[in-house]
Amino acid sequence: MDNLLEVNGVSKKFGSFTALNNVSITVPKGSIYGLLGPNGAGKTTLIRIINQITLPDSGAVILDGEPLNESHIKDIGYLPEERGLYKSMKVGEQALYLAQLKGLSKSVAKERLQYWFKRLDIEDWWNKKIQELSKGMAQKIQFVVTVLHEPKLLIFDEPFSGFDPINANLIKDEILRLRDNGATVIFSTHRMESVEELCDDIALIHKSNKILDGKILDVKRAYKSNTFEVGVKTSNNTVLEQELSETFKITPANFKTLNNELKLNIQISENQTPNDLLNYLTSKGEVSHFVELIPSVNDIFIQTVTNNNLQ
């Protein structure tokens, strides 16, 4: 079994509003899966369906080879975007309660909590009430509660919001460590740099439809435009620019160099290879810079969503 989670053709309507329209995603075991999409696209509905908070109108969800059922609750850890804790309850009591709701026995829960509290250096919070903690501190507790029952599938919705950079990094490292220990992570965020950094696969949901998914590298390959950022030193920049524009599609580029080179983005056509371009350039002058432009997730997100809106 290579995929931990398969969502097959799930649809959900709220009255006349379609929240999800025939959405399918496949989350490979042991991967970090980025669930992207503009606000109100239907991500939260999808996550709630996976968590069995909402029931789909049609379609099926398969977790680890079995249709989703009540026994899977303990296999999933969910950190919602709208999260909070009981304000007047003590940290330790509350964490124990939430862990027991996930099916842990009290003694096991206590043991693991002590381990995590030690690990995150928050042992002395045990008897504090949530209302005495700062937002970031409460977030840490929530993170611990989410992962405590060692679920196969972890779902984080904007896990870094509310954290300072140091704690955000700490949590990021913990997420990677959990992945390395065998957990599968679904990760929903608007912070594209974390997607770029953490995710192996992504899916993009827009207006209730999935409009893109796959390995992040495959997606990037599909979206690359065969454009190269180049810097060439010649005796006469304008002449070269003129000559290049006859064979290739060029646009001015902007990057930092030491010399006064000609800086261009050059797009090659289907039947040309990068080597053709490079050979041509070396024949004209000294090549100081030659990089293929790989689209960032951010670019892909904006481009796909805008194109989709135009259609």
């Binding site: 908070i53 999933i76 969910y78 950190l79 919602p80 999260r83 909070g84 009981y86 709701l101």
Partner: peptide, 16 residues
């Protein structure tokens, strides 16, 4: 209402 305003509800209903 308290459970709603403290936003713990979604965590709880993902378990029960």
């Amino acid at each position: 209402i308290e459970e709603k305003t403290s936003r713990i509800i979604e965590v709880i209903v993902s378990s029960v």
